[in-house]
Design a protein around this nucleic acid. Structure first.
Lengths: 336, 336
DNA sequence: ACGTTTTACGAAAACGTTATAGCAAAAATT
DNA sequence: AATTTTTGCTATAACGTTTTCGTAAAACGT
């Protein structure tokens, strides 16, 4: 921070600090000739206003935060890419915080951000049944614009960016059935978030709409522990009443299904048709190529960021409780 | 930012602002009873010091930046994960900037960061032949601790975190040869960075060490345009003198190789043995499972961040021109 | 020519901290 | 008992901006 400051600029120009400040802010109070003089000297010295001083005085800055469960996941990586494309263009700085599905971490990040470091917040919540009181609480005290995406809480007052989980899962499930699956299976989690609930609803309704009864055997509950899941699925797939179709609403479940099938020498798609929700770029290169329902991750990030910045700049965040819904994309490959 | 501030705290406690500040900073000048009183009231009101004011006064903050080419790439995602694990633990905030292999963007990010927003910088440079003058220049004027990782410039004065590219590529190439490859091929880029050069050197030396002559035909040059690369490789693989082994030093090249083989109905590993440098989690599920040389991405991020924070806190960044070398991991699967 | 408005700038007060210097009172040293 | 030193606190000046208010001079209107 060896840089020059306004005071030195002002001195060299024979102007007051306030004039320099206004000139750099392109204020109408300053004559265009003075503005030009100021701008030129600023450029000559490569002057950059100190953001701390500026933010302190203005009581706000151009920094936002992104809180997501994980970055080693194509979906979130793409979303961050989308977010960054907007913030970069609008000259905002983007903080990133990873919760690793840990509620305590999510809470502590929020608590930390109450210090006023940021002007807005983009969030995809981590799993857990404990509700969303901490977001409510954060909002009460910080009063900052917040946008949720994909993994959204059921708090009405916040704007959200999601994808058409119900419809696209319905469609995907129908494809499984049309391809010949009589006993499709949906893999759910222990504490399903809204997003997952929607997918399950789509699955269930597709079964019913196609004359297949939805029973306990249409669902299996997997956990965060992948080894447990592997064993659980292996046991199920070895049983007499094994499913002949799978909708995996989470990437890692789809991968586990593949691993189990490989180890049990089950043939995909003959023995088991598989559709997985994932943004894996290598889905087409798996053995066999995986049919995917992929989310418009980049676009979701882009929309969320665009909305957030709009809220920040218009200060109309109280009203902006929109829900933006984008379409997932179904790609049928050899696994069906 | 509805929060309470020090002045109000001081007033309620009947103390001066400086006493409160020192008490919160756990200064030895303040008695432990007063400290306790202050801390308790601060906690009661959930007081958080304003980072802008604090940073302004102290002329530094707890924010760092990460500049990487891409986040939609398992390697960089893992590295960011590693970085964040450190910054989170030490209560630093992490900005993220993506260059998308665009030198202009890299430059403009650097220029932006000259405003003093951050206290340190972790970088993996983008490709391009234009040299690294902008980093030098940034350092001259900002004087901030900087750590490079993986894609490092050949500027001596900066500390770097890399992996043993030469040795591990040498070993990988030997495995290709031992598995029967007589004509191994290395895919290089148009403007190889230091990292890639090291890998090529390892490849070349492995050939020579195993009695295979290193010729023009041991190399092929691919570009950023994946479609061009696809056609180029397809043509080569269709020719009489096609290679029977491939070392792909970049993830996307390995994927393209798989695509070409699939389309040409070439059998991996019979017709072509493949080792790819990648951190893809799905490598084992590809058809056939891909042998990988993977980088310790998370650890590299962690080391880089640890080093950077040490430099920031010790202010000894002038001296810290270490190079930390971590080991890549070779996993042989069905593709060899 | 006189009053009024506009233009273009400057002085000074924030913004919320931290660091420096000062100063009584208490404790320790002679 | 007289001194030095330590303890525990306060007053105040930064840090580098932005913003509010004030005010000459210039421009305008009649």
């Amino acid at each position: 921070m060896k840089g020059i400051n306004m005071i030195q600029l002002a001195k060299e120009l024979g102007l007051s600090v306030s004039t320099v400040s206004k000139a750099l802010g392109d204020s109408h109070e300053i004559s265009s000739t003075t503005k030009k003089r100021v701008m030129e000297l600023a450029k000559k010295y490569n002057y950059k206003p100190n953001p701390f001083a500026s933010n302190l005085r203005k009581k706000k800055g151009k920094q936002i935060a992104v809180i997501i469960p994980d970055i080693v996941n194509n979906f979130f990586a793409l979303a961050v890419d989308g977010i960054e494309s907007v913030t970069m263009a609008k000259h905002y700085d983007t903080f990133i915080y990873l919760t690793h599905e840990n509620l305590e971490r999510e809470k502590s990040v929020l608590e930390h951000l109450e210090n006023g470091l940021i002007s807005g917040l983009i969030i995809s919540v981590c799993t857990g049944r404990e509700g969303y009181g901490h977001f409510q609480q954060f909002y009460e005290s910080a009063r900052l614009p917040m946008v949720f995406f994909d993994r959204v809480p059921d708090l009405l007052q916040f704007p959200k960016v999601i994808s058409n989980n119900y419809e696209s899962t319905f469609e995907s499930t129908e494809r499984l059935i049309k391809a010949g699956s009589k006993r499709p299976l949906f893999i759910q989690t222990e504490e399903p978030l809204y997003t997952l609930m929607e997918r399950r609803r789509g699955f269930q309704d597709a079964l019913v709409a196609n004359g297949i009864s939805f029973t306990d055997e249409s669902l299996i509950t997997c956990s965060e522990n992948m080894e447990d899941n592997y064993l659980l699925l292996k046991k199920l797939f070895s049983s007499r009443k094994r499913p002949d179709g799978i909708f995996a609403p989470i990437e890692k479940f789809a991968i586990t299904v593949y691993q189990v099938c490989r180890d049990l020498k089950l043939n995909i798609p003959k023995d088991l048709k598989v559709i997985g929700m994932t943004n894996l770029r290598t889905a087409a290169l798996l053995n066999p190529s995986l049919s995917t329902l992929s989310q418009p991750a980049f676009d979701m990030g882009r929309e969320a960021a665009t909305l957030l910045l709009k809220m920040i700049e218009k200060k109309s965040y109280a009203a902006a409780n929109d829900i933006i819904v984008l379409a997932n994309e179904l790609t049928i490959r050899d696994s069906v």
